[in-house]
Design a protein around this nucleic acid. Structure first.
Lengths: 281, 281
DNA sequence: CGTCAGATTGAGCAGCTTCAACGTATGTGG
DNA sequence: CCACATACGTTGAAGCTGCTCAATCTGACG
């Protein structure tokens, strides 16, 4: 079940059998995180780094007055938390948006993985770089684009990132985000994000529904957002793929609509350790 | 003259003599970039990575309508452009704010440096991580703080980063940024940034002058900005240092006021190669 | 002394916020 | 099966933050 991770890394470099083995082994320790629960919280000093295997997560910071700013989203295959290995203290929190399967790689395991497999290390470093590039694009959005473009741009980004890994069925965007999540990412009020979705709908560009955003014409949306995917640094040949290509790896669909889970969600910030663990693959 | 680079890396790890030698050698190829000139431009496919030895630089993106969003500042000792090694295409530009001395490390040299000195590689990866953390804080600023806090926060960040390396004389902030630069970083109009500086002055927090921002009470400014330096991931013992500590390495003061250079500035996007090169240290 | 980049000021306006209310699914316990 | 609770989406109105436009001021420099 580390399929997406492998697929993402192999977009750029074919891994050897031993490398794959080492990777799969490192990702062996897996947990299920309920929707809306922190994976790691600001101020923690984690001993593990988190990798999203299936689901959706976000990074966020909480301000003094309680407001939340989401700084990025993580989809299946994303190494969300390489920071803690290098930096120790968490300067932000990591939370699951919907119920998600997450691999927790102990820092000693990570160290060994990198030391023994320098190519893998370079690939992960590369991921870090792309992460930074995405962050920069968010800075541009928040600093220079209005709410309408910001929203359209974000939809395009998530679509591009998911498409390249074959996540979702291609018809629209399977995103278990509610409007508050969007508002906190885009940096506007929920009232305003609602109006922006209404505008997108009236323009025929996108329709918001719980758990799914329907987009008939991605080209048109990208044009409206002036979306330029260069910053995602996807491989050339993939960038031209028709929307919705690629088969998802066999496996359960962990989330389809917001909080589509029987697990009760508490606003508590329970750490990873309290979550029931599952065995390795 | 790679003093600041060394100092910055050694905040976290004492380097061995061979490591220092390898580093100094890698930084041997140096150029002087005139104020307001691009070091690398969006769309380029550089063969070298840039390291700021002395001076001030920024990363920025230009929007379709010509507006510029600055996404980060680079000070002496910053590896601004490790991206190009991993990602190839530049998704943003890199420019000198004032006349700056920059080392250009050829990618093959960089590769050898990392391969031969794994600890150096890890340190640089760490730098990348901090870069990302700073980017995240900018996202928070732009998404959730008002212009006043954003400006105060930025001043605190630059001060903290410079102080830890002993850049500047400690009395204020030696920053050759004009108000347009601040506006483009903060994501507001020049008119508004001007009013924010007026407000900071009327509050007795900071006074803008060309090339120098005078701050009498950094504590007060940090309080006003609710500045929390955790995200800079500075070493513990340094974080508590009194302001203005540390002696700058011997060497010329390359910039003190905006465009303090006899070299004429053109808005052209001249690439690195056109700039007169200087010999190694 | 003229020129130019950059700082400053005022006035009117747009984007977005806040507050407050109401609508609508979905779930839950009696 | 109904009454109620909860979470989320939607709507209107008033107000503030920050924008645009446009003019003026200032200091540095040739």
């Amino acid at each position: 079940m580390s399929e997406y991770v492998l697929r993402k890394l192999e977009l750029y470099l074919q891994l050897s059998a031993p490398e794959r083995r080492a990777l799969a082994e490192a990702l062996g320790h897996q947990v299920i995180i309920p929707a809306r629960e922190d994976i790691v919280s600001e101020g923690d000093r984690p001993t593990h780094s988190a990798v999203i295997l299936e689901g959706l997560a976000c990074r966020y910071k909480t301000l003094a007055d309680g407001r939340r700013q989401i700084t990025s989203f993580g989809i299946s295959g994303d190494w969300m938390d390489l920071h803690s290995y290098f930096l120790g203290d968490m300067d932000h929190s990591l939370a699951a948006i919907c119920i998600s399967r997450v691999a927790l790689v102990h820092h000693t395991v990570l160290r060994k993985l990198i030391d023994d497999n320098p190519r893998l290390g370079q690939l992960l470093w590369r991921e870090t770089m792309v992460d930074g590039a995405i962050g920069r694009e968010w800075v541009v959005s928040l600093g220079a684009r209005d709410a309408h473009s910001r929203l359209a741009y974000l939809l395009c980004e998530l679509h591009a990132r998911m498409k390249v890994l074959g996540i979702g069925d291609g018809s629209g965007l399977q995103l278990p985000l509610n409007q508050t999540d969007f508002a906190d990412a885009i940096g506007v009020s929920t009232v305003h994000i609602n109006r922006m979705f209404q505008q997108l709908r009236s323009e025929g560009l996108a329709e918001y529904g719980r758990g799914q955003i329907v987009v008939h014409d991605w080209e048109a949306l990208a044009r409206a957002a002036r979306f330029d995917p260069t910053y995602l640094h996807l491989p050339e040949q993939i960038r031209a793929l028709p929307p919705g290509d690629g088969q998802p790896p066999a496996g359960a669909q962990l989330c389809s609509s917001p909080q589509s889970t029987s697990i009760r969600i508490r606003p508590s910030r329970t750490g990873v350790e309290s979550v029931a663990k599952e065995g390795a693959r």
